[in-house]
Each structure stands twice: as C-alpha cells, then as structure tokens.
Amino acid sequence: MNISPITSASPKSNVNFNGIMDKMAEGIAQGYSKVGNTDTFCKAMDKIGGSDKLMLHLSTASSAVTSGLYIYKNLTDKKKTKNEKITSALNQALTFGISTALSYGVSSALGKASKSLCGKFGEAVAKRGYDQKKVDMLKDGAKNAIDLVVCSSINRFVVPVAVTPVANKLGAKLCNFLNARDAAKAAKAQ
C-alpha cells in the first residue's frame, strides 16, 4: 500500500509562519473552511464521522487510485516488452492487494504493539528528570520512529520486496500462457 505523503507531513511540522508560507497556509485554511462548512461535507461527516476505520478506508482509496494508475501506466508503456508490462503490473497489483489485506487484518495488532512500545518509552523517559515539554517532544518523536519500524516498514519495504520474485514468476507464466494462446490462434487462422 502506498503511504500518504500528507500523513507523513505532520501538521505539527516546523513551518515558518512568516511571509509567503503564512499567506499560503491561510489561503489553504480558508479553502478548507469553505469546503468544511458546506452542507454536503457536514452531512457526510454526520454519516461517516463515527467510523473507527475511516482512516484505513481513506488510505485504501488513496492507494487504489495510485496503484490503479501505476498498473495502467505499466500496461500501456510502449518502452516495455510484454513480459515487463505484465510483471510490473502484477507487482503493483500484488503489493496493493497484500498491503491492503494486511492493513485490514493486522493493523490493529500492530497499532497496539506500537502503542505499548511508546508507553514503555514514556515510562523510561519520565524517570530521567526532564521537563514536561521535553518529555512530550520525545514521546512524539518515539511514536514516529516506532510507527516507522513496526507499521510503515511492512507496506513500504517488506511487502514490495517479498512480492517481487512472486510477480516475476507469475509474470513469466502468464506471458508464456498468452504467447501460447496467440500462437494457437495464429495457427488456426492459417
């Protein structure tokens, strides 16, 4: 599953609110305000706002759009051979499918593991005599680092790497099957 860049760019980032960036941020905030105060948005949030899996669904929708486009671009790429087109498209499809299945299947367990590790780090840091501001900052940072190792690495690293040899083999088999079918059709036509 592709990871959302907007969730990576935390709203708490150290953005300089002076000058151009402040004006841009204010303009975007006004845009959000216009959309967020429409009746359609408010009604939609009344309906889906209580879902505890909304983030997962949105992440899946975003990944579906990106992966779908990757698959389309791979299949219509004139610079690639038939085998390369099929294998690349299969690679994308398998990565999306397995990551999505894992997200729905084990994301809550991974989330709990991540939360538990964050809690342990919080306990350890609390004993070091830092002020509350530094403790909060360290906890935020630890959450980022732990989430990266426990959750993000599966979608960004483990699944795409594990899927590559599978896609290579399936791609070769599918390509051979299609070639044999085309050859049989051509033989019949003659």
């Binding site: 907007i6 760019a9 980032s13 841009m24 204010e26 975007i28 905030a29």
Partner: peptide, 12 residues
C-alpha cells in the same frame, strides 16, 4: 504538502 499541512494545522 508543507503549505497544505500548515493550512490544515491552522484549521484544526
């Protein structure tokens, strides 16, 4: 994403 997340930060 920087100005977008900054704008969202303002809203929230």
């Amino acid at each position: 994403m920087k100005p977008i997340s900054a704008g969202l930060g303002k809203v929230m």
